[in-house]
Nucleic acid binder design. Structure first.
Length: 586
RNA sequence: CGGGGUAUGGCGCAGCUUGGUAGCGCGUCCGCUUUGGGAGCGGAAGGCCGCCGGUUCAAGUCCGGCUACCCCGACCA
């Protein structure tokens, strides 16, 4: 039994000044966590109980699925990360340190290397596979900008699993097993998650899905189709290409003077003024915007790239980077323009773009720019644009790219319906890693023919500490925290109000009866604390059931409240313990 | 790394414009009263006003520099 009179806890009346999102404010106000350093938090008794409940649920579901728990160090040697190139690739996000002999070490940001090497160390036959192992471990990433309390820290706890299979079919089975386990896990946590298609990102690999907890404070943007159920992270949305248009009889391209039109807005305005179209006015969607960026490749070289897209769409940098990973995107500087004289800033057109054209710059088009579509675009001369430039007839590109922003209302790539947009917290990510790490670290086994085959891996993560915050975001209300029973620090918050000794005696007795029945109790036994304070604290702390032993005791009743619904019941003292136990067991 | 902001008892803030005894609310401690919605009265503890330098008889306040932290954008569980 937890007693408020001795519990290491201080609730705060005001929101902390540095907190922005509800989960951060409430967890600090309710005395669950304290900030220790930017992006680093200490857990207080109630918070630690919640954290351990979440961890327990994750572990139970992993074990139930037949995955085996291991535990790697957080302090790691440099060599494995050197072998996969991530010692350098991870850049400033890696916490690096040296031991007393000046040997490089790191605090693990993720453990693909260690898992791969451990399997390689012990196993060498197809008979040993499939194998899925996992750990629950503190991870360290020196984030550029930690934020939102537990949602994005520099130290956080993650459950990561890796599956090892000899072939793609096996990988698919392992992937599905993890997906099922995640659905169960997040269901038990009381989350109403959405599973979306995702990009596997910097980790490499192919098929990938994210589990998102929908909330406006989430960092990921996703789209969903009400019609067919399609859901995807915006980074992974595939733009449905319109059908190609026959350009027989289309007007010939013609270059026009368009002075002082370096932006889409000025260009459209001028086009409507000087070159009005009979049927409808020109819009930004009639223009083809060509955006030049500089790619920083993992090997350290830089390479320019031009993306052509309809002028009414911005380039979404996240989508662009996701499409180009592991290359990173940097702005194209004035100095870069100086080195590429064929590019006329503000008037760049397909005339010079492409690996075989004057600029030699790789040119990729938005999928909407299909063969036969006509565009207004730069004529590669200052103050001039070309009209009726037809894709497939007048210009060609080196390929297509998913880089344009995704908007609510865009067409669903699966059924053509309307996409809706929302934000969510990434609480889990599963993906088929393939052979990237097995190749890099030489994880091979002998198959039934005695031949060496490279193991194919899957990677599956749950942000455990982040999930604590996600549960808060999913469940809090205007009064405070509101825990689902399985993660709550206690089942019942017994509040003794008043100064009558009988109240405390009865509350103490009830608490002990409940504990004896296996119900976890937080008992507010503080003397000389006014009822208002106790009620406010009980609501803020968020146990699912609140039992009030107070003025009703004189008439032989106690009050049982459901924290979430606010429903109250007066129960005879003699029946109280049984009633509450029934509530707790649902 | 770019932009914005903040730094004053444990927490939330005022004071700075116009330099002159460091304040308010909450919390904490003591006493009395109070006890079904963050109680009242009286008393008390607790602060290198982020750091360094400058101006001045005098700096929380003005000037210069630095640091830290928070928020918004580009990376990720």
């Amino acid at each position: 039994m937890l007693r408020m009179s001795t519990l290491f806890l201080r609730t705060l009346r005001d929101d902390p000044a540095d907190a922005e999102v509800p989960s951060h404010k409430l967890l600090v106000r309710a005395g669950y966590i304290r900030r220790a350093a930017p992006g680093v938090y200490s857990w207080l008794p109630l918070g630690w109980k919640v954290y351990r409940n979440v961890e327990r649920i994750v572990r139970e579901e992993m074990d139930a699925a037949g995955f085996q728990e291991v535990h790697f160090p957080a302090l790691l040697p440099r060599e494995p990360y050197e072998q996969t190139g991530r010692w350098t690739e991870y850049g400033d996000n890696l916490f690096r340190l040296k031991d007393r002999r000046q040997v490089d070490m790191l605090l693990g940001p993720t453990h693909e290397e260690m898992f791969t090497l451990l399997v390689k160390d012990l196993y060498s036959s197809y008979k040993d596979l499939p194998l899925a192992i996992y750990q629950i471990q503190t991870k360290y990433r020196d984030e550029a900008r930690p934020r939102a309390g537990l949602l994005r820290g520099r130290e956080f706890v993650k459950k990561d699993s890796y599956s090892n299979d000899v072939d793609d079919a096996g990988l698919q089975r392992s992937y599905d097993a993890h997906r099922d386990a995640y659905v169960k896990t997040f269901g038990r946590l009381g989350l109403d998650f959405v599973i979306v298609s995702a990009m596997s990102g910097a980790m490499g690999g192919s098929k990938s899905e994210e589990f998102l907890q929908p909330t406006p404070v989430g960092e990921d943007t996703f789209v969903r189709c009400a019609g067919c159920g399609y859901a995807a992270n915006v980074e992974a949305v595939i733009t449905p290409a319109p059908p190609a248009v026959d350009f027989e009889g289309a007007s010939a391209a013609h270059v026009e003077d368009t002075p002082d039109t370096p932006t889409i807005e000025t260009l459209v305005a001028l086009a409507n003024e000087r070159f009005p179209r009979a049927d409808r006015p020109w819009t930004a969607a009639d223009t083809l915007k060509n955006v030049v960026v500089m790619l920083a490749l993992p090997d350290g070289t830089r390479e320019p790239l031009c993306v052509g897209l309809p002028g009414d769409r911005e380039v979404d940098l996240k989508r662009l980077e996701a499409a180009l990973a592991p290359a990173e995107v940097e702005p194209f500087t004035e100095a870069d323009f100086a080195k590429n004289p064929s590019l006329v800033k503000g008037y760049i057109g397909p005339g010079v773009l492409g690996e075989k054209k004057a600029s030699g710059i790789r040119y990729l088009l938005d999928p909407r720019v299909v063969s036969g579509t006509a565009w207004i675009t730069g004529a590669d001369e200052p103050g001039r644009h070309v009209f009726d430039l037809v894709a497939g007839r007048d210009f060609h590109a080196d390929g297509t790219i998913e880089a344009a922003e995704v908007r609510a209302g865009d067409a669903c790539p699966q059924c053509g319906g309307t996409l809706h947009q929302a934000r969510g917290i990434e609480i889990g990510h599963i993906f088929q890693l393939g052979r990237k790490y097995a190749d890099a670290l030489g994880l091979q086994v002998l198959d039934e023919n005695g031949k060496l085959v490279t193991v194919t891996m899957g990677s599956y993560g749950i942000g455990v500490s982040r999930a604590v915050a996600a549960v808060v975001e999913a469940t809090y209300d205007e009064l405070g925290l509101c825990w689902p029973r399985e993660v709550a620090p206690a089942d019942v918050h017994v509040v003794a109000t008043g100064k009558d000794e009988a109240v405390f005696t009865a509350a103490e007795q009830l608490s002990q009866q409940l504990e004896a029945a296996g119900v976890r109790v937080l008992y507010d036994d503080r003397p000389k604390v006014s009822p208002g304070v106790k009620f406010k604290d009980a609501e803020l702390l968020g146990m699912p059931t609140i039992v009030v032993v107070g003025k009703g005791l004189a008439e032989g009743t106690i009050e049982v409240r459901d924290r979430r619904s606010g429903e109250k019941a007066e129960v005879p003292v003699a029946d109280a313990a049984g009633y509450v136990v029934a509530q707790v067991r649902g």
